[in-house]
Nucleic acid binder design. Sequence first.
DNA 1: TCAAAAGTGTTATTGTTACACCCATGT
DNA 2: ACATGGGTGTAACAATAACACTTTTGA
Lengths: 239, 239
Amino acid sequence: MKNPLPFLPTNDLSAEEVMSSITIDCCVFSFEKGYLEVLLVQHGQGISKGKWGLPGGWIKKEEDIDVAADRLLSELTGVKDIYLEQVKTFGKPERFPLGRVITIGYYALINREDFKVKAGFTASEAKWYRIKDIPDLIYDHNEILQASLNRLRGKVKRAPIGFNLLPEKFTLLQLMQLYTEILDVEMDKSNFRRKFLKMKLLQEAGDKQTGVSHRAAKLYRFDEEIYQNLTRKGFNFEF
Amino acid sequence: MKNPLPFLPTNDLSAEEVMSSITIDCCVFSFEKGYLEVLLVQHGQGISKGKWGLPGGWIKKEEDIDVAADRLLSELTGVKDIYLEQVKTFGKPERFPLGRVITIGYYALINREDFKVKAGFTASEAKWYRIKDIPDLIYDHNEILQASLNRLRGKVKRAPIGFNLLPEKFTLLQLMQLYTEILDVEMDKSNFRRKFLKMKLLQEAGDKQTGVSHRAAKLYRFDEEIYQNLTRKGFNFEF
DNA sequence: TCAAAAGTGTTATTGTTACACCCATGT
DNA sequence: ACATGGGTGTAACAATAACACTTTTGA
């Protein structure tokens, strides 16, 4: 049988197993040392060799697209139950130089502590880049990244998804820094505290920071259950 | 050449001209007599004969997906420069019974006065339905419609897209009714006025309503230019 | 005891909400 | 003259923003 694809899948799937002309690309965000970062992978072959791009892959013939995205990312990052949201589909006819391929963009949020790069990948093949240091990417991946970031910025103001980027326990200032970094705005510590605590979404963990050379802050955890109870009202995380 | 599609395109394109396994479905909204309505079309053939669904179609092999959506809708509605926004892509493996087809969902806003149904379509083949009277649709079209409506509701609070549903000149109360209907909330006439006029997005048309049996209201038009100047600030249409 | 961050309090200002009320016009 | 929607005014209340201040802790 003739290969229906204008090029081969780059991973361990054969052309017969996957849908032709349609792929998935993912923008994986994490938060490390106060910076929002994105996971990029290096392309090993073809005309784009050496250039960085978003991780992506093919959709199996009988596989849901959300499941496909989850599969790709679980394999790559070692994280289970990844927070994943579809952004939009990119379909310029010339976006991919080797044939007509439409790609569905997703973004994911992961807690950096859970991350383990895929077996077989070296540090030079997958790397975290700070959002302000993103290089020129292959194809239209800069555009996909920008759309993902915009979506994240919008969503973070309307739903408490930021917690997916933090460890289970965190301080209020870490949380504020996360918002500061994602939204790229300065905010007042005191007002942030008041506003966030008023929502009653945070549970005191009971313990405190250790190993800091100043007054230790209380640790909190996000209370999923309370969130679910309030979520219909649709509240506002703008600062 | 063997037809690569598991079924035939339903319009005037042949299987060779279009991408296989990927389609576009559109949710066209308009505002008529105070009600938000959606344009549905009746399927004329196959197992879904007689059922209503969203208008949709195929993507040409060298055609941008946004262009494809625009083409489909211009043909169907007779409207040029349609306001169009991609919603998301639907890809459950079983969503379409005759083969694996992924569909990209769009929504459109049109001014009902500009609408003329496609030549060859009869009234029984394309019909406006009030949002609260939507019947059971083919495939996953109810899901696509719901997602489109949710997207419209979100967007209308953040950008002045509602104007696309109104004639060029309109009264403040018409505008308020539009928001009331889309967002499904009651609002205060006085507060709506104040809030909207404060944004300075509206230009007085100079003339007034005619043919009404009460005091005639001033007509306004939306000022695109002012909007562009303010748009970076990202303001808020919540009421 | 000092630096650094945690955490509290206060006030001026602005925005929101819920009304009451007057105005203009066609029937 | 009256019904109908157009349009204005206001006052209580809530949210926001700016910033000054006190507390705790490790080095």
